[in-house]
Simulated assay, not measured.
Amino acid sequence: MRLLRLTSDLPDVGPDPVLVAALDGWTDAGSAGTSAAERLIDQFEGTELGAFDPDALYDYRDRRPVVEIDQGLLGVPRWPELHVDVVTPPAGPTLIIVGGAEPDLRWRTVAEDLVELTEVLDIRRYVGLGSVPGPIPHTRPVQLISTSSDPDLLDRFGRPHEQVVVPASCQVALEASFRTAGLTTLGLWARLPHYVATDYPAASKALLERFSAYTGTPVDTSDLDAAIEDQREQLDEAAAASDEITEHVRGLESMYDAVVEAERLERLEPGDGRLADLTAEQVPSGEEIAAEVERFLRGRAD
């Protein structure tokens, strides 16, 4: 391994260990994926297995280290890092969790090192935890979609309806590399309101619940409920204070409900084209959604 430096001996991971990844960046909206991964490490007292050489991965002019200055006294810089932890839950498989700051450089080398690690530890499954902003209202449940090398997993955990071409994050590129290497891959992606610029605990909870359903990991998310309720109340108050925001949220609710209903009918009568029959008024095109997002954000900036 060229960049990954192991800081402890390779563990006995038991049968069917699972590689997990959650990196910050544009596919970590609301810090949902990274928060979910950190909860797994904290809840089950994970231990560090290794870390990547940060000097090889980061442009420090773009992602500068953070230094605390206390009345003129400099603290120790906190450098961006990409680390690998081992988590052994009381039930379910051992988890090898890759987390931290999305690298600026050497993505393919990172992927090669991680593929080599999967070969050494006989890891055959991968799960990614991430999140993206979308035309989703905060008044509805978090919507989850998936990417996978297995069509059955796509049907089970939520297959995106559209075909899109987007700039890849490092996490997406890693998943593609793991698929090419022969792992069974599952990327879990929470879609959360594009107008929420802070952490979104409801998305982290949704990711962990879906992760638990797949791996059998007994994750406790009950302590997130209070934060979820508080944020919902704050967003409701913000919406109520502006007719424009209220109208915007209602429009998102109509789109969300139309898609949910079409999906329900599609499950009852597979192949009847209900999803394809949705009108542009019910589910606008990507260009229309982007224009609406830009309009809304411009209005808030003003």
Rank of each mutant, 00 (worst) to 15 (best):
R2A: 15
R5N: 13
T7Q: 11
T7D: 13
L10E: 12
L19Y: 10
V20H: 00
V20F: 01
A22V: 04
D24F: 00
S35V: 12
A36T: 01
A37M: 12
E38T: 08
R39Q: 11
Q43A: 10
F44T: 00
E45H: 11
G46W: 10
G50D: 04
G50P: 05
D53P: 02
D53G: 13
D62G: 05
R63I: 12
V66E: 15
V67F: 08
E68C: 12
Q71F: 13
L73S: 13
P77C: 09
D85R: 11
V87C: 03
V87F: 09
T88C: 03
T94N: 06
A101D: 01
R108V: 00
T109H: 07
V110W: 04
T118F: 10
I123E: 01
R125G: 02
L129F: 04
G130M: 13
G134V: 07
P135K: 03
I136Y: 02
L144T: 10
I145H: 10
S146Y: 02
T147A: 15
S148W: 12
S148C: 06
S148K: 06
D150W: 07
P151A: 08
L154F: 01
F157E: 05
E162M: 10
V165P: 03
A168V: 09
C170R: 02
A173C: 10
A173W: 05
E175N: 10
E175H: 08
S177P: 09
F178N: 00
G182H: 12
G187T: 03
L188C: 01
Y195H: 09
L207H: 02
L208R: 02
E209F: 05
F211Y: 14
Y214F: 15
V219N: 08
D220Q: 06
D223Y: 09
L224D: 00
A226P: 00
I228Q: 01
E237I: 03
A238F: 06
D243V: 10
E247W: 01
H248C: 13
E253Y: 06
D257T: 14
A258D: 07
E261K: 13
R264M: 11
L265H: 11
L265A: 05
E266H: 08
E266N: 01
G273F: 11
L278W: 09
E281Y: 03
E281C: 02
V283D: 08
P284I: 00
G286L: 14
E287L: 12
I289M: 04
A291S: 14
E292T: 13
